[in-house]
Nucleic acid binder design. Sequence first.
DNA 1: GCGCCATTCTATAAGCCTATAGAACCTTTA
DNA 2: TAAAGGTTCTATAGGCTTATAGAATGGCGC
Lengths: 210, 210
Amino acid sequence: MPGTDRYQQHRAQAIRAAASVFSEKGFHGATTRDIAERLGIKQGSLYYYFRSKEEALEEVCLFGIRDYVLRMDQIAASDQPFEAKLMAVLTSHLSSYRERNEALKVHNDERLYLPSGKRTRLKELGTHYREKLEHIFEEGVADGTLRDSLDCHFAAQSVIGICNAWGDIIVRDPDLDMFAVIQKCADLLLDGFRERRGADSAAVADSGHG
Amino acid sequence: MPGTDRYQQHRAQAIRAAASVFSEKGFHGATTRDIAERLGIKQGSLYYYFRSKEEALEEVCLFGIRDYVLRMDQIAASDQPFEAKLMAVLTSHLSSYRERNEALKVHNDERLYLPSGKRTRLKELGTHYREKLEHIFEEGVADGTLRDSLDCHFAAQSVIGICNAWGDIIVRDPDLDMFAVIQKCADLLLDGFRERRGADSAAVADSGHG
DNA sequence: GCGCCATTCTATAAGCCTATAGAACCTTTA
DNA sequence: TAAAGGTTCTATAGGCTTATAGAATGGCGC
């Protein structure tokens, strides 16, 4: 029954199972039987935890999202130099991909199938996330770390794009060194690819990972 | 009948309709009725053009892909300075997104549902694409345009990630100025975000689109 | 041992989907 | 106008899916 501890734990398991199956087969491709099997129960029993297949999708899409956005808030509000904030954002974003593996893959594709209310709520969270990141970049411009000509909206969107692209790769290849990827992302974002004769272009704050 | 010109034209229309519906609803979410309706015919008639729903997906996934990869080959083989090649790649990649709109969205997600033979073929094409881009970067390092420390594999993957992220945005917002996005991508990739006192950081080859 | 309640099971209704078969329609050519 | 063949239509079989109803199971306090 909703309320007991055991119930909540089992329900969380069910959400994970649904996330896993949705991300493999897509929302419509996944059947309630698939989800139940992954969970080790029978198809009909699933309805003890979800009112419908759609409710399962809703839960999957919101699973952990709040933590993730909250972390961005904390980084944005923190008192660190720009480079450290950037590293923190990259780390948080890419770590989330590893931690929440299936769920995140679902967010990218399957939110299509959410009822429009939940869909706009998710979109709002995404916008909030981008705006916070944008704000970090604006600070970087203000304090002279970043070039004046930087389009902060473009910058924020691009960083999210890069993180998502690498997130997908990181999820699929567990052996990949995430911190190496983070470091290279930071190098790219701060200093670009171009050769600079007589300039030290590896000046990214070492955050102590390895 | 396969062979006649009219048939081939109508079949291409059917592929487009399928692409459009698949990208909206996903492979399993799309019904043959949806596709037929978008095309203006009845559900059963679709089977005059496709042996099955899966065959429709195959056609969608391969639609135009060859042209797209071929263009990368041409750019890679061309005799232009690095900056020009980079601009050409960005332009080609992002233009493809606009041109082939729905089909490309499908490639990213729905290829899951392809029979494994077709799936690996697509993957090969993707790998080929990335390797060519990687090669362009290696040349850039060799001729001194790019820094020696650049990880070309990382660079190629990141550029593709950025292009795909912006491609998604460009497709959804027809008013967005694609060439402005391309220019900013090039700025980011070549010179990064960091302020450089006393350096001209806007030195990207003007390819004549402004 | 007994009753209680949470959890899972079985069985099934009702609906939708793909694919096929064969009729109907339309266009071209003679 | 008639014949031929390309294109689309109607109708339907057969299978799979979600969601519900109600029975069975298992642990726990007494």
